[in-house]
Computed example of a mutant assay.
Amino acid sequence: MSDAALKLTGISKTYNLGRPNEVQVLRGVDLEVAKGEIVALVAPSGAGKSTLLHIAGLLDTADHGQVQIAGQDMTGLHDRRRTRIRRNDVGFIYQFHHLLPEFTALENIVLPQLANGAARKAAEARARDLLETVGIASRADHRPAALSGGEQQRVAFCRALANTPRLLLADEPTGNLDPATSDQVFAALMELVRGSGLSALIATHNLELAARMDRQIRLDAGKMTTA
């Protein structure tokens, strides 16, 4: 059994649109992310990176292959167990922040902690610490509409790490930002990840950002190669 944070073995996925329109998105993908490692997943649009991240994060299932998170085989788990692992062990970040518009930045980070059984006082303290780390503690009481795009995404980063996951999965986390803001926001993300000591698999088109991670891999035509 692997002690890697994430291990994918022989992952294949086909979307059946009706013959002859089957689309094989992933073709026997093998991937391992070590504990504390930040890996860049470089892939062109339509290469299957989102599908791969969803399978790795238990939001989707593979047709064939095995997913291990922190050495535990995820194959065949019932929905309740998969949900518990997603909530406790995996953090997700998407290109768009998906913050709840009726709640403040602080509340958006507190809510997933409360859902996970944390006491409100402790949840608020952690939320403030995370916002301080990414440099927007002064914006804690603002709702998403009053925040800039970069600030919104920083809040999303904090929310993803609120429950201290073991693994972070990010799909183009700065892809919706201008270059200058993207660089600043990515630096904040790296500070959060490095400071937390967790493992991360981050999909990006930006080769400059990819070069700042520990290792690069490439997904092309459904297969994994070294970038």
Rank of each mutant, 00 (worst) to 15 (best):
I85M: 00
D89F: 09
L99Y: 05
Y94G: 02
L99I: 07
A115P: 03
H98Q: 11
H98F: 15
N108F: 06
L106G: 13
H98P: 00
A105P: 03
R84D: 11
V90A: 03
F92T: 03
E107C: 02
I85G: 06
P112D: 04
Q95K: 08
G91P: 01
V110M: 12
Q113H: 08
L106H: 08
L114V: 10
F103K: 14
T83M: 06
L99A: 11
P112S: 06
N108A: 04
L100D: 10
E107I: 00
F96T: 11
Q113S: 06
L99N: 06
A115H: 15
Q95R: 05
R84S: 13
R82G: 01
P101D: 06
F96Q: 12
A115W: 13
A115E: 14
E107N: 08
N88K: 14
A105M: 10
A105H: 07
L106T: 14
Q95E: 05
E102M: 14
R84M: 12
Q95P: 00
L111H: 09
Q113K: 09
G91E: 00
F96L: 11
R82C: 09
T104Y: 04
R81W: 03
L106A: 13
Y94H: 10
L100F: 13
T83Q: 12
F92S: 04
L114W: 07
R84L: 12
H98G: 03
D89R: 15
L106P: 04
A105R: 00
F96K: 10
Q113T: 02
D89M: 12
A105N: 03
R80V: 12
D89G: 08
E107V: 05
T83L: 09
